[in-house]
């Protein structure tokens, strides 16, 4: 299987750089899979789970949002924050979800409330996936 260059960077540091076979990206408008020689694309990300397949290894990471850029050089993901799924602290995550919920209650405008409700829904979905254990591949 043809491999391609994948880079995952957060504002604080370069998290991953190397050759991979397949990456499943949680795009803002739906998940998509990137294989080698993908057409150039720029997409925003929603909070979700990023799946990286290299050789026989499958790595799953939680990302909080950011951007994905696919060019002829490969895939670059600018993530706000990324943690390996096994390392996500579920209680902390639940706390951040409820904190977000509290923030939603005092959103200044309807438009902002709509956006925040969407993000909250996505966070909940991630929470369900995380809670469901690592067995569910997608």
């Amino acid at each position: 299987m043809a491999s391609f260059q994948f880079e995952l960077v957060s504002p604080a540091r370069l998290l991953f750089s190397g050759e991979v076979d397949e990456v499943i990206v949680p795009g803002a408008e739906g998940e998509f899979t990137v294989l080698a020689n993908h057409a150039p694309l720029v997409s925003t990300l929603r909070p979700g789970i990023l799946t990286v397949k290299a050789g026989g290894d499958v790595k799953r990471l939680y990302v909080r949002g950011g951007f994905a850029e696919i060019s002829e050089k490969g895939l670059t993901i600018l993530a706000e924050d990324a943690t390996a799924v096994e390392d996500v602290n579920l209680t902390e995550f639940a706390a951040s979800v409820s904190a977000y919920e509290a923030k939603l209650a005092q959103a200044p405008s309807d438009e902002a409330r709509y956006k925040m409700a969407e993000t909250l829904f996505q966070l909940r979905a991630v929470q369900a996936q995380l809670g469901g254990g690592g067995a569910t591949a997608h």
């Binding site: 504002p11 803002a28 408008e29 150039p40 720029v42 997409s43 925003t44 951007f67 002829e72």
Partner: peptide, 23 residues
């Protein structure tokens, strides 16, 4: 490289610009 944008350019820019500022 002719990029495809998902969602539209202006929506991406609306997110990208404040984040660029923060960066």
């Amino acid at each position: 490289p002719v990029y495809e944008y998902e969602p539209e350019e202006d929506e991406i820019l609306a997110e990208l610009l404040p984040r660029n500022l923060a960066t």
